[in-house]
Structures are given as C-alpha cells and as structure tokens.
Design a protein around this nucleic acid. Structure first.
Length: 429
RNA sequence: GGGGGGUUGCCCGAGUGGUUAAAGGGGGCGGACUGUAAAUCCGCUGACAUUGUCUACAUAGGUUCGAAUCCUAUACCCCCCA
C-alpha cells in the first residue's frame, strides 16, 4: 500500500533538496517502487550523515516501497571526489572489507528485511569484481562524454583548486552511474537518493540509464545536515558522532543531541527522526516560547538514542545525565558507576591509601589528573570548584577515607561543572 | 662586512637598580547568573609549603647590600648602509 503522502512528508521535513523530475517521481510513487541509496564504507561504523540517508530508506520502506542499501565495496576502493577538496588515500582491502561488514551490520538493525517490501543489502563489489577494464571501457565508458564529466561540480572544483584529481577519482562517477543502471536492470530500481553532494553522480547514472537502457530514471537528493553556522552536523572537537556504541557511547550520543543549538534542533528533528508533524509543530512552538526548557533538544536526544541504542542505551544515557548534571552520587555499585562514567578517565590508586588518616584531597585530585599541581588543586578547592561524589570539597585539608567511596571501589572526582575523573581503589596484591 | 634596535610569564605587551612573582590585555581555569546555551559579572592563573621557602624576565658570567633593569660574552630576531 504505497502511501501517496510520501512526497508531502518529505517536503514538510525539508528533505527534498533537488529532484531531477518531480512529476515523474510523483507518478512512479503511486505504485510500489524500488529506491536505492549508496553508502561509502569509509569506516566500520556509520555516522550521523549516513544515518540521515538510512532514515530516507526507512521512510520509503514505510510508505510501501522497497529500499536497497548499496554498500560501496567497489566504489570505496576508488574514493568519491564529491565534496572532497583533496585526493584521498586508498584504503587497504582488509580495511575495506571490515568497513563493509561493519556498516552492513548496522543497516540490518534499521531496515526491515522481511515481508513484501523487504529491504535489500547489496555490495557493488559483487558485480564490479569480475568486470574487466577493457569490458568496462567498451560497455560503460563509451557513453560518457568527457565534456560532461568535466562540467560536474565535483570535478571542476578540484580542477579549479590547486589539489587536482587523479584519473582514478575522475572515473568514480562511472562506477556509481553503472550501479544505478545495474540496479535498474536487475531490480527494476528507478529512483536513487543521496545527499546533495551526490547530485553529479546521480545524474550521471540517469544519463547512462537513458543511453544503455533507454529507460527514464529519477534522482532525488536531500540537503546536507549542516549547523546554522555552516559546519557539518555530527562533528565535535573530539571527532565524529558514530552509531557504534564502541566509538560513541550512548551517553555521549545522547549528550550530543541534547546540546544541539536552538537554531538547529528543529531541523535535526525533521531530518533524522520519525516524530510526526503534529508533535514537531508543538515542539517548535515550545522552543520559540520557552527555549530554556530545551524541550525539543530533549525529545530529539531521547528519540535518537532510543532509536539507535535501544531502551537500555537510552536508560543508561538518561541515568548518566541525571548523575552528571544533577544530584549527589551515592549508593551505587561498581558496575553501575562504571557504566555511567564509562567516558570518564579513571586512575588506579592503592586501596591502602584510604586507611588510617586517609588520602589527602589535594593528592586525590592530582592522582586523578584533574589538576596540574598541588597548588592548582588547592586553588581549585579554595574557589569551590572541587567536588567528590558531586559534593563540594570544603577545604584543602580534607582527607578521604573508605567512607567517601561512592561504590565498592570507586570515587567520583569533579573539577568545575563537567570535568569528571574516576578513582578506582584497587586491592594491591 | 659596517651601524642601530630587539629577545619579559601560555600569547600580546608595560616595566630601565630596591614591597616586581613582575602593570594591562588576551587565553585558560574556577565561581555567580542561565537553559547542560550565548552574553555578562566576580575571582584565580610559577612551584613547593597549614603565608614562609625556592625557581623565574633569551643563555653564561660579572658589578652591587640589592638587578628583569648596569657591564661582558654567546645565541636568535628585526631594521639601515654596503
């Protein structure tokens, strides 16, 4: 039951940046279609940008169409020059293989691989690996006028700049164009989506489809997810936000969305979530009226975290947030504390230090690496910026004993508002 | 090759014999306010030590009761004349 509303849904979400032929697309979508988006296996995990594309596939699937997630095992060997200012280093085969496997595993969690609209997960390496160079030039290359290729933004910007581009990267668009034709032929896939930086590659595929198959294909791009000051969403000083909990903990993931700028939060909700129009409007109104409540940020963070990391991930993120930004820390066990503070650096201290007079706070802060010298630690304490288990340290003479443990073996030290460190008091053999 | 100027704490930049651990600004760090935001305001910002000691103004020596401040040499930088 294809939903006639898919297009209007995409429109209000602002997800249609460009479309090669909106009328044709609308016509196609009246019946179940196959829709594909390619993913670059640049790492073993997707990040925020990839998630946005994945959501696109989901939206099509939910509207009654069949999504194909194409992992670029072959194209990844070449490197897409689109949106890149410099020639990229080639990945090793092993790296690429691991990346393809990692990304594919993540996609399985977000698409439905059963039922009449079962999603397909394909790898273009499967059809590229046996294609000989000569055959490719004869079958595919023949249809590509170099003049047109030179006109593509991705190529021109590189030629205009001073970094140039290799023949290898120049050829990238042929591979992606061929993917589209291949999918059209084998899976009757007539629609390709992607980020706006994929426009050139997508239209190259459409041209090739017309020439090789005499069939009209349609392309659709989504805007890039940028912050209001023009940078890519999902990047922090410490690197990208990944979907893989090993790379970005559920807590860090949650916090990223929780701290999105007011100016960007509604767009994130529209682009990345399945929160409906009604709730969206309500959140937008609340943000305008009372930005201090961060209602939209909280909803976004909740939705995203639960979607990507499940209930458990969300709960631990919420609990950690409550601890880190809220009350005192006590009555927890090692396991819970460890989970909540998994992003926080920790140091080992001999348990015996807590015996007798106990451990001098100043030294504790030094051991935890939160202060640069004893003087710095004293200063911080004097300024009221030192906390043990979220209780402010009264003076620099305080000594810590086993009574100050937050759990069996751990103590939580904090400097200022957010700088945490864990001390683990281990039994020395 | 000759002449002149410079080198100060994380950065910029005052200071030209004596409360100078060194003005002022930036940055950083705390705190207050706030929305886990921005802006603003206040405090701190060499080390060690329960207010005293040590190490600091390019480097090494010297003069002096006392120097970042004077002298000598060395290194680096800038400018002018050849």
């Amino acid at each position: 039951m294809p939903s006639a509303d898919l297009l209007s849904e995409l429109r209000w979400r602002g997800l249609i940046h460009q479309c090669t032929d909106e009328a044709a697309l609308a016509e196609l979508l009246k019946t179940p279609q196959t829709f594909y988006i390619g993913f670059d296996p640049t790492a073993t995990s997707l990040h925020v940008g990839g998630l946005m594309q994945l959501m696109m596939l989901r939206r099509f699937q939910q509207a009654g169409h069949r999504p194909i997630a194409l992992v670029g095992g072959a194209t990844g060997m070449i490197g897409d020059p689109s949106g890149k200012s410099e020639e990229r280093n080639l990945q090793t085969d092993e790296q690429l293989e691991a990346n393809v496997a990692g990304v594919a595993a993540q996609m399985r969690a977000f698409l439905d691989f059963d039922g009449p609209q079962a999603a397909l997960l394909l790898n273009n390496y499967d059809w590229m690996k046996d294609f000989s160079y000569l055959q490719f030039l004869r079958d595919v290359g023949k249809y590509f006028p170099v003049g047109t290729m030179l006109g593509k933004d991705s190529v021109r910007s590189r030629l205009d700049g001073d970094s140039g581009l290799s023949y290898t990267e120049f050829s990238y668009m042929l591979l992606q164009a061929y993917d589209f034709v291949r999918l059209a032929k084998e899976y009757d896939c007539r629609i390709q989506g992607g980020g706006s930086d994929q426009w050139g590659n997508i239209t190259a595929g459409i041209d090739l489809g017309r020439r090789m198959l005499g069939q009209p294909l349609v392309g659709l791009t989504a805007p890039l997810l940028l912050t209001s000051d023009g940078r890519k969403m999902g990047k922090t000083e410490r690197g990208a936000i990944w979907l893989d909990p090993e790379r970005t903990s559920p807590y860090a993931f949650y916090q990223y969305w929780r701290q999105v700028d007011d100016a960007d939060v509604m767009r994130c909700i529209a682009y990345l979530t399945e929160i409906d129009r009604e709730e969206y409007d309500a959140l937008a109104a609340q943000t305008a009226e009372d930005p201090g409540r961060c209602a939209a940020q909280q909803r976004l963070a909740e939705w995203m975290t639960q979607f990507v990391h499940g209930d458990d991930g969300l709960n631990s993120a919420l609990r950690a947030s409550k601890m880190l930004f809220g009350g005192e820390i006590e009555a927890l066990d090692d396991r819970e504390l460890g989970e909540i503070f998994e992003d926080v650096p920790s140091s080992e201290v001999d348990r015996a230090a807590l015996d007798g007079d106990g451990l001098w706070v100043v030294e504790a802060f030094q051991r935890a690496g939160l202060t640069s010298s004893n003087g710095d630690a004293r200063r911080t304490i004097k300024e009221g910026g030192a906390y043990v288990n979220n209780r402010r340290v009264a003076n620099a003479n305080v000594r810590l004993t086993a009574n100050d443990l937050a759990s069996e073996t751990m103590m939580v030290l904090r400097k200022g508002k957010r700088k945490y460190a864990l001390l683990r008091f281990s039994q020395e053999p």
